[in-house]
Amino acid sequence: MKISLTVNGEKRALDVKPETRLLDLIRDDLGLTGTKEGCGKGECGACTVIMNNKVVASCLVLAAQADGAEIKTIEGLGGKDKLHPLQQAFIEKGAVQCGFCIPGMIMSSKKLLDENINPSEEDIKRGLSGNICRCTGYVKIVDAVKEAAHKIKSGGEENV
């Protein structure tokens, strides 16, 4: 069946099966493999994307349910040429180890900062509570989100 949606600002029309998950659409049909699958059951957060300004586990959303939606994935945040302040902060603060959880972690962070540019440590932890990281012990991830908030506030960098 045909659906159309906006992914990272670009309109896309696709033919999907009813059972196609949003995650499969993003990874297989659109080739945006920055979004990862770690458990397939909404328990790890590696597949987190922003859909209509909400964080979702894209493994638990049908592609059909994203019909007409606006989706943002890690690829839509920033690239080599211009990193998003969150991406920059994750690198600087040493928040990246194996990196498999990081795209999802950054998307949850992005949503968090969209809503609250002055998050407390507790706000950050609550905002990222759906994203499991097995490497870092999360400490530097919390630091990175704080740093990104600071960069956005003080440096005039945009959180888009």
């Binding site: 990874r27 945006l32 493999t33 920055g34 979004t35 990862k36 699958e37 994935t73 890690i74 690829e75 945040l77 920033g78 690239g79 080599k80 990193l83 969150l86 991406q87 994750f90 690198i91 600087e92 040493g94 990246v96 990196g99 498999f100 990081i102 795209p103 950054i106």
Partner: peptide, 18 residues
């Protein structure tokens, strides 16, 4: 800074299933 971190924060790093 980690030499492979940029690829990982932009989603460009290729893990096996990617």
């Amino acid at each position: 800074l980690k030499v492979d971190a940029q690829d990982k924060v932009t989603g460009e790093a290729q893990y096996p299933s990617d």
